[in-house]
Design a binder for these strands. Structure first.
Lengths: 254, 254
DNA sequence: CGACTTATTGATGCACTTCAAGCGACGTGG
DNA sequence: CCACGTCGCTTGAAGTGCATCAATAAGTCG
């Protein structure tokens, strides 16, 4: 079984066979969840920890004005609520985007692992801290970049994170997000996402066909939006940065 | 000694006398740092954990275009880099805003505490998770609110967090932030911050005089920007929410 | 096939940016 | 003690990136 979690943790810290076995044991009872379904809602205090084995989900909050702000994208290998031990209740909701395969891990199982497998415990900490680092970069993204770079940056990040868990084939990955989803991630409107995506497509940076996104030249797209992967804290990333390579100004509507 | 850290941790979990003594022992060798000074920079791998005892600092990143994005405000009782054990290097910088009193705590001291004081260990986890929750709310703030609400929200949050460590007198607190600082927190320009702050002042919501900010009616300001303190995960907050109380539309330049 | 969601496109408006200039407070050095 | 530079704040005028409104086209699914 191709367990995304193990792969992800190993990208940070070497695991023993015993560690791997303990982690594999967690993923026995998987569950299929349809797209656009909430896994955990605001105010919940879940008894189990949710782990995503396949598919995409996202963290979001609903504002009083009815709009949705997506605060994180969850890909295979990501925990939804490792914090369940500490905080009293969820301050946001987690919902699937595509169909997902998930596991509900009892608190006890996690506690047992953390008691007996220091390497895994450390790796769990790492997961939580990387989540935070990603969040910080999203803040920079929304706060400081124009909409075209903003979207490109999200596309780059998802690419890198999927690649780390072996979910990229060639330069392409499954892309079930709607333009509305991207709008809610980046804080721009759906209409403007449409126009900006077109700009990226016309520039030859990306292709999106039948829910598959292709990034023609990863280095180029990264240079375009000043993507610096340091914040992902990956140990063995396949794609080196191509910093300081200026991206030629694009002709409008060319 | 009025230790903000102990006060903050106790707002989450009851501590024993032994716990308190252990925490007090950490704060022996304090250090004064001037305003506008970097404590830890991108790429650093600090040997010690920094704790702020007094004053304000902030996390920030510098974009390639030279602009600064502030990702968090640090108040007395906040750790700068509790993550030092896990991540290889800092992906952002931490700098003081005002003059600060800080302590550098050796990793070993933290490790010792975490080995012997489970209540404190749990509270440290809590700190880290609350930091993350605050970050998420900042994302919502920048991504989904207009500039006047955005600024008001930051003012509310700092108020609540300072209150939790006893740094609020009446409805006022020290406010050393420049308009440029607020601009970099909220992702709007300094000029527009100026105009928006004026709007808040003219509305009678706040007063800012000689670096002291006064919020005339906390409930009102919270209602104005839809501030919901849940995300701070405070156990014993003094200020209840006044939700669903519509804020009357303000006359322009009234 | 019909209902519904998602994507596309155009026209218009506004919140915020950009540029620019002036002002007061503060510190520093001649 | 005043000249001078710096820094933070203020204000005006003009421009623009993105939002809003609206209508149509293109999937997608039961």
């Amino acid at each position: 079984m191709n367990n995304a979690l193990i792969r992800k943790l190993e990208s940070f810290e070497a695991l023993s066979d015993g560690d791997r076995a303990a982690l594999s044991a967690l993923s026995l009872k998987t569950r299929e969840v349809g797209p656009r379904t909430d896994l955990i809602s605001v105010g919940d205090n879940p008894e189990d920890v949710h782990l995503i084995l396949d598919g995409y989900a996202c963290r979001y909050k609903l504002l009083d004005e009815g709009q949705r702000q997506i605060m994180a994208v969850l890909v295979p290998g990501d925990f939804c609520d490792l914090n369940v031990f500490i905080l009293d209740q969820m301050d946001h909701t987690i919902g699937t985007v595509s169909q997902c395969q998930i596991v509900k891990i009892p608190r006890k199982a996690i506690e047992e692992i953390m008691a007996n497998h220091p390497a895994i415990t450390k790796a769990f900490w790492w997961c939580s801290l990387v989540d935070e680092a990603v969040l910080r970069e999203w803040l920079v993204n929304i706060g400081g970049r124009p909409s075209n770079h903003r979207i490109a940056h999200v596309l780059c990040e998802i690419f890198m994170r999927l690649d780390a868990v072996g979910r990229v084939t060639g330069n392409s990955y499954t892309f079930p997000f709607t333009q509305m989803d991207i709008a809610d991630m980046t804080g721009i409107t759906q209409v403007h996402v449409n126009r900006t995506m077109r700009e990226l497509k016309n520039s030859g940076l990306i292709t999106l066909k039948q829910r598959v996104l292709t990034i023609h030249d990863v280095g180029q797209l990264k240079a375009y939006c000043n993507f610096n992967q340091n914040y992902l804290h990956l140990k063995n990333a396949r794609w080196s940065d191509r910093r300081n390579v200026p991206w030629p100004k694009l002709a409008q509507d060319g």
